[in-house]
Design a binder for these strands. Structure first.
Length: 111
DNA sequence: TACATGACTCTTA
DNA sequence: ATAAGAGCCATGT
């Protein structure tokens, strides 16, 4: 199995957990922030595993570069992601965040 | 060591 | 502008 030691995944979870409520970030930005530039796929991979990670990881705050909820189908329910975002004050239309740039939270800059 | 996977991103047709 | 393909990284087998 995977090494018990934490890998970049743990770092990703830490960054995602650091995302303020009502804000969102992108896979590429996170990958860039952790040092794994271009490894946006790894971030998505980590999110897929995040369902079993504790403390809970707000994966719903992580979307693709276009602000589209690409991973909504990976949640417990396909509506959970947008529901949570809307709940935090973010408008989601057609699986896409409205004014994504406005809600965008860059871990590299904020941190 | 090499191949396969993936909630991405970029470039080209 | 929209669609399709290739590129990229880290991890597992």
């Amino acid at each position: 199995m995977m090494p018990a030691k934490e890998s970049i995944y743990n770092t990703i979870y830490d960054i995602v957990r650091a995302i303020p409520r009502g804000r969102v970030s992108s896979y590429g930005a996170i990958a860039n922030a952790i040092g794994a530039k271009g490894a946006a796929r790894m971030v998505g991979y980590a999110m897929n595993l995040s369902h079993a990670i504790q403390p809970k990881v707000p994966a719903h705050r992580v979307v693709n570069r276009n602000g589209m909820l690409t991973g909504k189908h990976h949640f417990e329910t396909p509506t959970q992601m947008e529901a949570l975002l809307i709940k935090e004050g973010i408008s989601v239309v057609d699986d896409q965040i409205v004014d994504f740039e406005k809600f965008f939270w860059d871990p590299m800059i904020e941190l």
